[in-house]
Design a binder for these strands. Structure first.
Lengths: 132, 132
DNA sequence: ACACTTTTTTAGAATCATTATAAACTACAA
DNA sequence: TTGTAGTTTATAATGATTCTAAAAAAGTGT
């Protein structure tokens, strides 16, 4: 099965529900941003099948831990995830509360000069807030 | 009074509680990060006076809106604020769940090349996640 | 100082995203 | 198969934040 490996890598068995979540998340050329609730709605529409919120939370978190999804650091009541796990950044339109991708080439290289003893950099994320 | 102007600018009258919040937030050379709950505890310790959570939320939000405090975009169950409102960035130590300031000079200049029609950049924030 | 209006504070209730629970269900290996 | 360990689900619990309404304080005019 197409997504079995991704699931196994994340420590999850390939169940019907999880494969459906994979279809919605990964069976597309375009990457996208989502909240858990948006994802649940999308699944319901695309598969005519309701998957319980708990399952969606569990699966998304397992993928996030493994690096198949990224959390987008932003102050919002809901947590935003991104299926684009390459190194890239975001605009956040404050008025419309919408995220827009910033390609890596749209932001000059970022050089972190400070070092912290015994720690290594896991990620560098830039959030550019937009107003009118 | 020392903080009256700051409060008036934020659309708030200088009451006893708000002045106490100001003391804790601004009467120090060092800037610091805090959550609402941490701030409430700090107030109780420093002033021997309990201020209700609702008042702390209101005041902090008014200051944030006016730019006397900054929200730090980070995925955490609690919202983090910063009394350092200058343009600067953060390390986030994932294991210890601790924020560390990154001086602006520790990060090379950041050049946002993409433009969005009719929108202007309000802020550019870099979050560097650290792991062991 | 007093009466009167407006703003503020407060404790507790309401809300909402997320996490935990426990019973029914399913995958998978022996 | 059959057993067991993992999974799904609805629902309850949790916890941060926001709302509410009544009491307290501040501001205003006399």
């Amino acid at each position: 099965m197409k997504y079995t490996e991704k699931l196994r890598n994340s420590g999850l068995r390939p169940t019907k529900q999880r494969l459906q979540i994979c279809e919605v998340l990964f069976n597309t050329d375009k990457t996208f941003h989502f909240t858990i609730n948006e994802l649940e709605q999308k699944i319901k529409k695309q598969t005519n099948n309701k998957i319980s919120l708990a399952t969606v939370y569990n699966t998304v978190h397992a993928f996030e831990k493994k690096g198949y999804l990224k959390q987008i650091p932003i102050n919002s009541s809901e947590t935003y995830f991104d299926t684009n796990v390459t190194d890239h950044h975001h605009f956040y339109d404050l008025k419309e509360e919408k995220l827009i991708d910033l390609e890596n080439s749209d932001v000059g290289p970022i050089n972190i000069l400070k070092k912290i003893n015994g720690k290594k950099i896991k990620s560098v994320e830039v959030l550019v807030k937009l107003e009118d």
